[in-house]
Every structure is written in C-alpha cells, then in structure tokens.
C-alpha cells in the first residue's frame, strides 16, 4: 500500500462513515455539522485528483453557502430535535434493501466497462504547468460557453424564485 493509497483509504473511509453519521442524526444541526466535515474531506479528495480549483469552489460554495443556508433555514423554522419521534419511515427496511441493490448494480456495471475513450490533452503535467484555474477557464469559456451562460440564468431564476417563494405575505 503506497502512501497515496493510504491517504485515499483514510479519506474514503472517513467520508463513508461521516455520511452514514450525517443521515442518521436526529438533530438537524448535528447533521449539518457532519455534512461540513464531509465536504472538507471531499475537497481533500479533489486535491488528490489535481482539481485544486474545484476543491476551492467546493469549500466556498458548498461549505460556505449551501450549508449556511441550511443552517439559516433550520434556525428560522426553529426545528428542534425531533423529540421521541421516529426518524425513519415505516418502510425503511425496503429503502435499505433498495440502496444495497443500487450499490450492487453499480458495481456490476463497473465490471462491465470495457471501452476506455482516448485520453484527452490535459495531462497532469499540463495542468501543473498552466495551473488548474487556467485550464478550467480555457475550456470553460471556449467549449462550454453556452452552458456557462445558461448556468448564470439558472442562478438568476433561483434568486428570484427563492425570494418570491419565501417572502412573507404583506397583509
């Protein structure tokens, strides 16, 4: 087991454990905090994959914006710990079974991947030379310009929508 593999093993296992912990919390604030740690670990995984820009983005947006939004809502609605109530549905064994089946299927599909497309041009060395951000920018603003614009549209719609939906009715 080489060093990278060891590090990966740590991050992978902790990610899995934290995600399990996250979804089994009764207190939503606890779950959000676990989610925070989870996102940090995932950002670390991105760093492993030479995607520094994405790691930064992950931290800023997910850990910085989305989680804070969740916390805001939890505080706003004053969601307490669900006292004495069940936290799972009545049919949660079925859901567990479904999830297991899903994992199994995906692993089976993984086994069946035979065709590897030809490698692209952005090798590790090139990314190291240019810098991750430059590489992302070069591809983003040329090949994927239209999706970029549409993504900005989506954000605009989200802003307006969120405001309208959550606005308190003026009596």
């Amino acid at each position: 087991m080489t060093i990278p593999q060891l590090f990966f093993a740590y991050f992978a296992i902790s990610t899995v454990i934290m995600s399990i912990l996250m979804i089994t919390r009764k207190n939503p604030v606890h779950a959000v905090l676990w989610m925070l740690v989870l996102f940090v670990h995932i950002a670390a995984l991105y760093l492993f994959l030479n995607a520094e820009f994405l790691a930064a983005i992950q931290m800023i947006i997910y850990a910085g914006a989305v989680l804070v939004l969740f916390l805001f809502v939890i505080m706003l609605l004053n969601l307490r710990k669900e006292e004495g109530e069940r936290k799972y549905n009545t049919f949660w064994p079925v859901c567990a079974g479904i999830s297991v089946i899903m994992v199994v299927f995906m692993l089976v599909i993984l086994r069946k991947i035979e065709v590897i497309p030809p490698l692209g041009e952005y090798s590790i060395e090139k990314i190291h030379t240019e810098g991750s951000m430059m590489s992302v920018g070069k591809v983003l603003y040329t090949k994927y310009l239209l999706p970029f614009e549409i993504a900005s549209f989506i954000l605009l719609v989200a802003i307006i929508g969120a405001v309208i939906l959550a606005k308190r009715r003026v009596e």
Binding site: Y88, N89, C95, I98, M102
Partner: peptide
C-alpha cells in the same frame, strides 16, 4: 446509495 437511503427513509 447512502444518500439514496437517507432520501427514501428519513421523515
């Protein structure tokens, strides 16, 4: 799949 379980099973 862990996320899937959480989505389906949490109330």
């Amino acid at each position: 799949s862990i996320g899937l379980f959480g989505f389906l099973a949490r109330r």
